[in-house]
């Protein structure tokens, strides 16, 4: 079981399932204090520590990589602008993820409005440079995974992505999602079961602790 507490520098998970951000010696509280004074390296450290989690939640909410990245960027800038509102620095990540959800919600609402417009009124999304072969293969896999994830509830998607991609513990997920550890386990269980049903035997369910 991971022993990290929210707001502390992350330590490697014993099960080594986690793909965490690089270790940083300062706590979130200290980094927030320095970022409030405009110290760029402190903001950078906060961003590197929490961007993966923000991305997981953004992807769970939007179902699209480009949109998830836009939401992350927007959310971090908004968080910096509102950094003085952080009363409990140890709960920073939960506060940040709520901003991510709000921004994702706004983006989806905006997209619904845009999708109602005639095609020529919508701007074409800029194409990004991608390696041809691997990117094509990855794109196919991602598309299938994201399509399957669409069948889960938003909370289930968040829990599955935070657990399976980000490598968080149930305790961390519970704090970030705003639920109990038990409920987080249930969300993970149901989410994985749905994915297994949708994707078949190729979806390997790791041992759920």
């Amino acid at each position: 079981m991971l022993t990290i507490r929210a707001g502390e520098p992350p330590r490697p998970a014993p099960h080594d399932r986690s793909r965490r951000a690089p270790l940083h010696t300062e706590t979130d509280a200290r980094l927030i204090e320095r970022a409030r004074r405009g110290e760029g390296d402190a903001f950078d450290a906060l961003m590197r520590r929490h961007m993966r989690a923000a991305y997981a939640v953004a992807l769970a909410q939007t179902g699209d990589r480009d949109d998830a990245e836009d939401v992350c960027q927007d959310a971090f800038v908004t968080a910096l602008q509102r950094l003085d509102e952080v009363r409990r620095p140890e709960a920073f990540v939960g506060w940040l993820l709520q901003i991510v959800r709000n921004r994702a919600h706004n983006l989806r609402r905006h997209q619904r409005v845009r999708s109602a417009l005639p095609l020529d009124a919508a701007e074409e999304a800029p194409a990004r440079a991608r390696g041809p072969a691997r990117e094509a293969e990855d794109a196919e896999l991602r598309a299938r995974l994201l399509e399957a994830l669409e069948n889960l509830t938003p909370t289930q998607r968040e829990v599955v992505l935070l657990y399976d991609v980000q490598g968080w513990s149930h305790r961390e997920i519970a704090a970030a999602v705003g639920t109990t550890e038990g409920a987080a386990r249930v969300h993970l269980h149901h989410g994985r079961r749905a994915l297994r049903a949708l994707l078949g035997p190729t979806y390997r369910e790791e041992d759920t602790p």
Partner: peptide, 9 residues
């Protein structure tokens, strides 16, 4: 493909 790693950013 065996897990959700293709979604790893």
């Amino acid at each position: 493909w065996r897990d959700l790693s293709p979604l790893d950013p």
